[in-house]
Simulated scan of single mutants.
Amino acid sequence: MSPEESQRLCLDPEGGLPRLLEIMRRLRDPETGCPWDIEQDFATIAPYTIEEAYEVADAIERQAWGELKGELGDLLLQAVYHAQMADEAGHFAFGDVVRSISDKMIARHPHVFGDESRDKTAEQQTRDWERVKAAERAAEGATRGTLDGVALGLPALLRALKLQNRAARVGFDWPSTDEVLDKIVEEARELVEARETMTEAETFEEFGDLLFVVANLARHLKIDPEAALRAANAKFTRRFRSIEAALAERGKRPEESNLAEMDALWDAAKALEKAGA
């Protein structure tokens, strides 16, 4: 592509995906590109990729559909960025990324693209998905452990769920929710009873154990713990802002109040929410 053709494509609002790919190539051009973009590598861009994924989730959580378009674009740019760097290094190109995910979707949906029946529940389809994934791992020819392939870079709560799901598939799981609840009580009691005698490292470890079991409880209850915690964060934010608003009406700021007053305002905000519900 000539410089003139490149410029026309980059400035064409209707250029679609080829336009974005060319923009990324131009940004990374070692002679004419952006100095910041040229300096980046996979490791430096990865945190932005994670951040953009969370921005997408945040827009969906807030039902900010006007913002979602831009957030999805930011996330798409991350895939294009990594693919461009991989192309420069001779690993693969963006087309290979598209081909890989397309082939995977075809292979994992034989009830849509093959001759398997679609007459199955979502739960059965999930089991079939895991069966196909297991077959793919076996076809790789390498001996893999049950927990291999669960990415280290996942958020800790999500990785805990995936590790627990993998272990549960081979029978390493509590038989019912009751045992999980008992374990939570046990872990919490250990943390409370030994907090005065444990070292900082031991306290850290016990607290991690408690969080891990709570994640397991979410799995047994079929609750997405990330979504549940996001909802709890939103509720806390909403109610604390109500406290600030009520204090402002009294000509005060939170630091000029006390716990008793703010706790009463919290209860009022909670009651008002429940009445509204």
Rank of each mutant, 00 (worst) to 15 (best):
Ser2Lys: 09
Ser2Asp: 14
Gln7Trp: 08
Gly16Gln: 00
Gly16Asp: 00
Glu22Lys: 00
Met24Val: 02
Arg25Val: 01
Leu27Trp: 04
Cys34Tyr: 10
Phe42Ser: 02
Thr44Phe: 04
Pro47Leu: 02
Thr49Phe: 15
Glu51Met: 09
Glu51Thr: 11
Glu51Asn: 09
Glu52Pro: 05
Ala53Gly: 11
Tyr54Trp: 15
Glu55Gln: 09
Asp58Glu: 08
Asp58Pro: 01
Ala59Pro: 02
Ile60Phe: 13
Arg62Leu: 08
Arg62His: 04
Gln63Arg: 13
Ala79Lys: 02
His91Gln: 05
Phe92Lys: 07
Phe92Arg: 07
Gly95Leu: 06
Ser102Met: 07
Glu116Trp: 11
Glu116Gly: 01
Ser117Asp: 05
Ala122Gly: 03
Gln124Thr: 10
Arg127Asn: 11
Asp128Gln: 09
Asp128Lys: 06
Lys133Trp: 08
Ala134Cys: 10
Ala135Pro: 03
Glu136Arg: 07
Arg137Asn: 06
Ala139His: 04
Ala142Thr: 13
Leu152Val: 11
Leu152Tyr: 15
Gly153Ala: 05
Leu154Pro: 01
Leu154Lys: 06
Leu157Phe: 15
Arg159Gln: 11
Ala160Phe: 02
Ala168Gln: 04
Val170Thr: 08
Gly171Phe: 07
Phe172Val: 12
Trp174Gly: 07
Glu179Gln: 11
Asp182Gln: 11
Ile184Gly: 03
Glu187His: 08
Ala188Cys: 06
Ala188Phe: 07
Ala194Asn: 12
Ala194Asp: 13
Glu196Cys: 06
Thr197Val: 11
Thr197Arg: 09
Ala201Glu: 11
Glu202Gly: 02
Glu202Trp: 00
Glu205Arg: 09
Phe207Arg: 11
Asp209Ser: 15
Leu210Ile: 03
Leu211Gly: 04
Phe212Thr: 02
Phe212Gly: 03
Phe212Val: 06
Val213His: 06
Ala215Asp: 02
Ala215Cys: 09
Lys222Tyr: 05
Lys222Thr: 13
Lys222Gln: 14
Ile223Cys: 06
Pro225Lys: 05
Ala232Gly: 14
Asn233Ile: 09
Lys235Asp: 14
Lys235Ile: 07
Lys235Leu: 15
Phe236Gln: 14
Arg238Asn: 15
Arg239Pro: 00
Arg239Ser: 03
Arg239Ala: 02
Glu244Cys: 15
Leu247Ile: 03
Glu249Gly: 10
Arg250Cys: 08
Arg250Leu: 11
Lys252Cys: 01
Pro254Ser: 12
Asn258Leu: 04
Ala260Leu: 05
Leu265Lys: 05
Asp267Leu: 08
Lys270Ala: 10
Ala271Met: 00
Lys274Tyr: 02
Lys274Phe: 05
Ala275Thr: 14
